[in-house]
Write a protein that binds this DNA or RNA. Structure first.
Length: 507
RNA sequence: CGGGGCGUAGCGCAGUUCGGUUAGCGCACUGGUUUUGGGAACCAGGGGUCGGAGGUUCAAAUCCUCUCGCCCCGACCA
């Protein structure tokens, strides 16, 4: 029997998917658990990815007329109580500040003192406090639309956490806009959804499905929630981000009113939308393999890593001189909106070791340069979209000339691979038994990777949705936007339906 | 927050059932020698209050109680 190729990550995805995820995060040095339960430390490599996500999206928000601002971390409890559904949705996961200082407890420790007259909530989201400002800022239709975004941290006291996917504190971007008409607010909601989905496809190389959330899955207090869902390699769905049409609900709660052209005082129409550091988790589970992370070039902190190979000081000198020349040629180049990021890894470690470290971190292109390469004025290239040993030599000048093309090729390859995987695992189905079978693992004790996205008819009844969730732990991820009306029958109750929805297990 | 599992060196683990030399192993780390187009070999080292606090005992990583943390499943959620 052929010996299994040794992988950098154990367990493999097949062996234990959650275990693999955890090991990848560690091996790629993206983040670690902190001393504070449920919170993570995002390490430089992980934060570098976030910075690129941030920069890219920020440019896109600005280009569509949005401006950044910053609102307080603390929200007075009374603000929070204004929108009933909103309170209900978030109450269970709020961190509450009750005191303003500490004093000696008489036993060598400290105890909280200075009880606050009004308790403060650490923001789980900012609709209410931003709404309070908006109420002051808006008085005329001439003040609209108001297009604001903030980059911030938020806290949701989660019971079960996973690095990047769900932590007590996380980083995100929350857009909040105010409009004079329902239509304009709905257009904004959809425009942002498309912006997100395009970003996911073009930058994260992540295929996604845009759709609308059902009543039970929507944002607490929203009129409508739109989502873009991605498929992870364990065939579960991951909600990658959301865009909400809030109608006049929050305007009424926060008293955001304006005088229309006709001189009539009306409540405004608002939206909110956000993506979080969860996108990094999505990236890992969309492209990662048993050797670690695979980063899309357009979001990678480093595009090209150069590993010099030498045996003695003399070789070191010639190799490093050549590497310097290579670095100089590359570092002034541009790859899409960014400067090409080149990293020369001249640490005093063995070549193979360094190479594997970069494989695990997911750098798109690795160049190994030894004396023989220098003599031939060439480089030895490994690509993260190929096997670790599948390397090839080429003239240094050829590499420099083609590097952006190579990066684009990697970007395309990993998108295609993920897209093929997703498409292969989206199954249209109309039979209830087939549906149940699809979502039931063969080995109940130690469930194998199974299921996928089931495109099935739904009558629109919440009880059908609820039953599926109870029986199979499967939920309606979204009602896809891109579909034709089609006559069919609800996969649960058999009542007539005109649309298919995506059922899947999810994160 | 419920059910299950796990905390032993930086990482991965053995040892715990049935208490008993000086707590081991692999990788990593330090020094040396030899190697090297590539996840090196050999030699010699360093590093542990066995998650924490109590208790039982002549003796506790091992038994008991409590506690903290992590992982998986569930409920909840970006």
């Amino acid at each position: 029997m052929a010996k299994k190729e040794k992988t950098a990550i154990t367990p493999t995805r097949q062996e234990n998917y959650p275990g693999w995820y955890q090991q990848v995060v560690k091996a790629a040095d993206l983040a670690e658990n902190s001393e504070v339960r449920g919170c993570m430390v995002i390490k430089p490599w992980g934060y570098g990815i976030w910075e690129n996500i941030q920069r890219t999206l920020d440019d896109k928000f600005k280009a569509t007329g949005h401006v950044n601002a910053y609102f307080p971390l603390f929200i007075p409890k009374s603000y929070f109580e204004k929108e009933a559904e909103h309170v209900e949705g978030f109450a269970k996961e709020c961190a509450v500040v009750t005191h303003s200082r500490l004093e000696d407890d008489g036993h060598g420790g400290l105890k909280p003192a200075g009880k606050l007259t009004e308790e403060l909530i650490v923001r789980p989201t900012s609709e209410t406090i931003i709404g309070a400002s908006f109420a002051k800022w808006v008085s005329s239709y001439r003040d609209l639309p108001l297009l604001i975004n903030q980059w911030a941290n938020v806290v949701r006291w989660e019971l079960r956490t996973r690095l990047f996917l769900r932590t007590t504190e996380f980083l995100w971007q929350e857009g909040h806009t105010v409009h004079a008409s329902s239509q304009e607010a709905q257009d904004e909601t959809m425009m942002i959804l498309k912006l997100y989905a395009d970003f996911a496809r073009e930058y994260l190389a992540m295929p996604v499905i845009e759709g609308r959330k059902t009543e039970s899955e929507k944002f607490p207090g929203a009129e409508a929630t739109y989502t873009f869902e991605a498929m992870m390699q364990d065939k579960k769905a991951l909600q990658a981000g959301t865009s909400h049409f809030l109608g006049q609900k929050f305007a009424k709660a926060s008293n955001i009113k304006f005088q229309s052209k006709e001189g009539v005082e009306e409540f405004a129409w608002t939206t909110s939308w956000g993506v979080t550091t969860r996108l990094i988790g999505a990236l890992i589970m969309t492209h990662g393999d048993d050797n670690g992370v695979v980063l899309p070039p357009r979001i990678a902190p480093v595009h090209v890593v150069v590993v010099p190979i030498y045996r003695n000081e003399e070789e070191q000198k010639t190799v490093m001189a050549f590497v310097q020349e290579l670095e100089d040629a590359l570092k002034d180049m541009r790859y899409h909106e960014r400067a090409l990021q080149v990293k020369v890894d001249d640490r005093d470690l063995r070549g193979g070791e360094k190479v594997w470290e970069w494989i695990k971190k997911g750098v798109p292109v690795r160049l190994e340069v030894g004396p023989r390469d220098v003599a031939a004025a060439s480089v030895f290239m490994g690509r993260r979209d190929m096997e670790p040993r599948q390397k090839s030599g080429m003239k240094m000048t050829d590499f420099v000339e083609n590097v952006t093309g190579i990066l684009d090729e990697i970007q395309n390859n990993i998108f295609k691979k993920a897209e093929t995987f997703m498409n292969e695992n989206i199954i249209s189905m109309d039979d209830h038994d087939v549906f149940c079978d699809y979502f039931t693992p063969k080995n109940a004790e130690n469930p194998e990777i199974h299921g996928g996205f089931a495109l099935a008819h739904w009558c629109g009844d919440a009880s059908c949705e609820e039953n599926v969730k109870k029986d199979l732990k499967v939920t309606i991820r979204c009602i896809p936007l891109a579909q034709e009306a089609e006559e069919g029958r609800c996969i649960v109750c058999g009542k007539p339906s005109t649309k298919r929805v995506i059922y899947a297990k999810s994160y």
